[in-house]
Simulated assay, not measured.
Amino acid sequence: MATPLTDKFGLAQARAHLRLDPDDDDPMIALYMEAAVDRVEQHIQAPLGRNVADVGAQEDVGIPPSLKAAVLLFLGDFWENREASFDHKMIENRAAEALMAPYRTNLGV
């Protein structure tokens, strides 16, 4: 079942990134995709698909490729570690952090 977020990103692209077959677990992929989008939006403090230079903008301008890649990196992390329990602190994804850095808003607030 697709949601507006997964429609924008494309479940096919998510499946390809996760190296899954076309009929594998769409509801779980969508759940982790939404969690990954939420993680990126929290980091940049702006909604994806809006003009992040103007947080109040209502116009959908698409998702920059670097933010889309960050979402996919987090999706992969969430998918790989969906059943794991950690005895250590989970390390942030440095590649995703670097991709998101130019889009952060409200720095110092």
Rank of each mutant, 00 (worst) to 15 (best):
V55I: 11
D26G: 13
R15F: 01
D24Q: 10
P22Q: 09
E92T: 13
K89W: 10
D21R: 12
A46F: 01
A2L: 14
A84E: 14
A36S: 09
D54E: 14
L31Q: 09
R39C: 14
M33R: 06
R39I: 15
P102E: 00
R39Y: 15
D24K: 13
I29L: 03
D25Y: 06
E80F: 07
V52T: 14
L67C: 02
E59I: 04
H43V: 06
G49D: 00
P4D: 06
R50V: 00
L75R: 06
T105A: 08
N93F: 12
Q45R: 12
L72F: 07
A2S: 14
E83A: 15
L11D: 07
L75T: 01
S66R: 12
M100F: 02
Y32I: 04
N51E: 11
E83Y: 14
L67Q: 03
A30P: 05
P64Q: 13
M100P: 10
K8W: 13
I44Y: 00
L72A: 01
M1K: 07
A16H: 04
T105I: 05
M100K: 04
E92V: 10
A101V: 13
V109N: 08
K8I: 09
A12V: 08
R50C: 00
D77V: 10
L72I: 03
A36D: 08
L75N: 01
L73K: 09
N51Y: 10
M33I: 09
A69N: 05
G62H: 04
A14T: 05
L11A: 12
D7G: 12
I91L: 08
V109A: 10
G56S: 04
R15M: 01
V40W: 04
V37G: 08
L67S: 01
L11I: 12
R19V: 03
A53K: 14
D7N: 13
A12N: 11
L20G: 03
L73T: 07
N51I: 00
E41P: 10
A95N: 08
L107S: 13
V40P: 02
F74N: 08
E34V: 04
Y103L: 00
R19D: 03
D60C: 05
P22T: 05
P4G: 06
A101K: 15
I29S: 01
P22A: 06
G76R: 03
F86I: 01
R82Y: 02
D54F: 08
H88S: 09
G62T: 01
A12W: 11
R39P: 14
A70E: 01
E59Y: 03
K89Q: 09
E97R: 11
T3N: 06
L99D: 00
D21C: 07
L11M: 10
K89G: 11
G108L: 02
R19G: 04
F9E: 05
G49I: 01
W79G: 03
Q42N: 15
Y103Q: 00
M28E: 13
Q45H: 11
